[in-house]
């Protein structure tokens, strides 16, 4: 077709100005839903990183009572080493534990000097392949026949078995709840923005009904008649997406440094590549919402 894309852009622009209240409503709801999606994805990425760093630190420590019998330890250690879920098992003697403690408290060596003897227990440090197995491995360790003989408090084994389960569980639970809430919110916002868009398009169709009638009369193709309306929906989607992307970029600029200042112990970073990818995803989302909204209106209000 010899027609220039300028024709469609002009038509879409004119109609946009004519129905600016509806258009604005559509853009704002698209903006909010995409912003939510964006924030959610960013939070997801950050939590993923935090989890990864926490996961590296997830290890099960089994503290051994003073004077345990080495023949009790060996079978447990062997069975752990042979376990496929376990990455490594390291034995830390009382002396090594004290060395570590000294390193950690190098600023105030008097603490260690004041100790009459070495109060730190020897331990086994069990590192997992996949931190999600932590509960299962803990259960297995507790069930091992030698376990009670090795620890100082057989009546309360939790005292001698340390692992980061609490944090991980909470994080997993939190992300699951957040995920559900965000998905429901986004679905609602997307629904509302589609209603806005299809209303805008309906008004645009109504405003141009004479032109449309004549286009039909002189044989304009169906796609030609639909195109300005599709474009209008896509434009609204893209503008909403652009606003959301703008806010995401600002968030990356200000929020991420602030977070990593406030939470120095957690690795809070968001790469430029991930941000660009997110931008593309949001733009695609916006276009899809705009297209679906206007296709919906065209099917209902513009029989061709």
């Amino acid at each position: 077709m010899a027609i220039s894309p300028g024709y469609f852009l002009k038509e879409a622009g004119v109609s946009f100005r004519r129905n600016w209240v509806m258009s604005l409503g559509a853009i704002i709801t698209i903006f909010f839903s995409l912003l939510l999606v964006g924030t959610f994805v960013i939070t997801g990425i950050l939590i993923q990183e935090i989890l990864a760093s926490v996961e590296e630190k997830v290890m099960i420590q089994v503290f051994l009572k003073d004077g345990y019998a080495p023949e009790d330890l060996d079978p447990l250690q062997t069975s752990l080493v042979e376990d496929a879920r376990i990455n490594s098992v390291e034995y830390v003697s009382k002396e090594q534990a004290l060395e570590r403690f000294k390193e950690q408290t190098a600023d105030s060596p008097e603490i260690v000097d004041q100790l009459p003897n070495n109060p730190l227990p020897a331990s086994l440090e069990v590192e997992l392949v996949d931190p999600e197995d932590v509960e299962a491995v803990v259960v297995d360790i507790k069930a091992h026949p030698n376990f009670v003989n090795l620890i100082a408090n057989p009546e309360d084994p939790e005292k001698d078995l340390k692992y980061g389960a609490e944090i991980i569980d909470k994080l997993f639970q939190l992300t699951n709840v957040v995920r559900v809430v965000v998905i429901v919110l986004v679905a609602m916002l997307v629904f509302v923005s589609m209603i806005f868009i299809s209303n805008t398009i309906r008004l645009a169709i109504y405003a141009r009904r004479k032109e449309i009638a004549i286009m039909r009369l002189v044989g304009a193709s169906n796609w030609f008649i639909r195109m300005p309306f599709l474009l209008e929906g896509v434009m609204q989607g893209l503008i909403g997406a652009a606003l959301a992307i703008g806010v995401v970029v600002v968030m990356r600029q200000w929020l991420v440094p602030w977070l990593s200042d406030t939470l120095p112990f957690l690795p809070v970073t968001l790469s430029a590549g991930a941000t660009a990818q997110l931008g593309l995803i949001l733009a695609a989302f916006g276009v899809a919402i705009g297209l679906i909204g206007s296709i919906f209106a065209l099917r209902r209000y513009l029989r061709v």
Binding site: A2, I3, E211, I214, M215, G219, S221, F224, I225
Partner: peptide, 11 residues
């Protein structure tokens, strides 16, 4: 001109 424009005739 509209009748020609909308069936894609050239300028």
């Amino acid at each position: 001109a509209f009748a020609l424009e909308v069936i894609g005739r050239s300028r």
